[in-house]
Design a protein around this nucleic acid. Structure first.
Lengths: 234, 234
DNA sequence: GCAAAAGTGTTATCGCTACACCCATGT
DNA sequence: ACATGGGTGTAGCGATAACACTTTTGC
């Protein structure tokens, strides 16, 4: 095995600018939202865009995206996944840039407001996204489709809710994704049958006089659920 | 909008080597196979690896992967999708290289044998993959998981079979993925009920005296199927 | 006491699973 | 004539979908 720092073969190759862009999703009890920014550098300064950054030599792509998220939202430990690359030669008018889009789910209530305002960031309803620079609109569309699909099969929506949440809150997210009302009896029956939530004794009273019991997602129970050969499917 | 060639901001940024690697799947009527290559350049020359290449300035990632596939298999119009990026700083001992893995499904019977032998390529059973260089084994594992998952929900397995194929051939692929025998009556019932195949009047007699009718995947029918709100699920 | 959301059970329907025999043909 | 894989139908079961009323409590 070759252990020198840079192999001769590699020196001949062209190098590229590489960036990460983040599609940040939130949920405000009404709708799925996306966090968009006013771009601060040329080209296209001032236009609406996703938040992103060129990567540096000391971080991999995932960590680069994490850093971007932390800087723009003040949040650590965000749910984050790679979406796909965008590499058309002329996609960026400034120069060729290969961008790796990532999508993130955050809890709006934990957001650092100051940070966000400092970055000229605003939430937009996910089914009413304005035009964005370059191919960012495409990235958003792709991310929404991916998320819609993934939400059906993986327990990821919990990342949009506070650690403790109610069943009706969870249902509301799925109703946004599917764009239709769900039967609350059937929804509750299904999610409870999975046995992946812990019911607390506390109630959330922000949306009704009666209050709804708070639940917590239990990762251990979920693993057991999967180990038994079950499939999360909503 | 800025229309100059390279923006000043961009000039300060670090650039990176970017490569594509291809996980090539085939099916030989018995098992899912993977095409692996003996590496020809340092570092790690002679070791087993996926086929790949540094990208050039004139092609996007998808087209770069297509070119790699064409050069190594002699095939055009291959089913090809991006898997994910691999970007750990130290993943390549030669230098930092960001690799974008792609997976491809090809029809083994159409393969250009000469081309393949020229490239020191050999087929390996997908559940008995030897050690590969760098993180290529990880790429393969990720690709297999992705494919297993995608095959359930998207009609992609047809890309592993000749244009005309039999129902038992198709079933065999799914039996490989699930690693269990399926009931032929139920399998046939399900796939026929989708109404996305055209039955021909011809038969394939390579695996039985009686012969099995040949079918063709019909993209138009599939679109209708989806438009009606159905879901492909096997 | 009333408005508003939370919570609860039952029935009909549909789709999936399990299962066994006849058919066509090459040797 | 026999061995081999191709092709077909049905019945039982489990899961989903449809549906309406009671409970709690802040105002």
């Amino acid at each position: 095995m070759n252990t020198s720092n840079t192999t001769v073969e590699y020196l001949k190759q062209e190098k590229f600018l590489v960036a990460v862009d983040c599609i940040i999703f939130g949920f405000d009890s009404e709708n799925i939202k996306l966090l968009l920014f006013k771009r601060r550098v040329e080209p296209l300064k001032g236009a609406l865009s996703l938040i992103g950054s060129f990567i540096k030599n000391d971080l991999n792509l995932n960590d680069s995206a994490k850093m971007v998220l932390e800087e723009s939202t003040g949040l650590k430990n965000i749910f984050l996944k790679e979406l796909r690359t965008y590499s058309d030669i002329t996609r960026d008018p400034g120069n060729r840039v290969i961008s790796v889009a990532h999508y993130a789910l955050i809890r709006i209530n934990e957001l650092d407001i100051e940070n966000v305002e400092e970055h000229d960031a605003h939430w937009y309803d996910f089914n009413d996204i304005p035009d964005l620079i370059i191919d960012h609109k495409q990235m958003v569309d792709d991310a929404i489709n991916r998320l819609r699909d993934e939400a059906r099969r993986e327990p990821i929506c919990f990342n949009l809710l506070p650690k403790e949440f109610t069943i009706p809150q969870l249902q509301a997210i799925y109703e946004c994704f599917y764009q239709k009302k769900l039967d609350s009896r059937n929804f509750r029956k299904k999610i409870v049958s999975f046995d992946i939530l812990n019911k607390t004794t506390r109630k959330d009273k922000t949306s009704s006089k009666k209050g709804a019991f708070l639940y917590v997602f239990n990762k251990r129970k979920f693993k057991t659920f999967i180990a038994k050969g079950n499939r999360f499917q909503l």
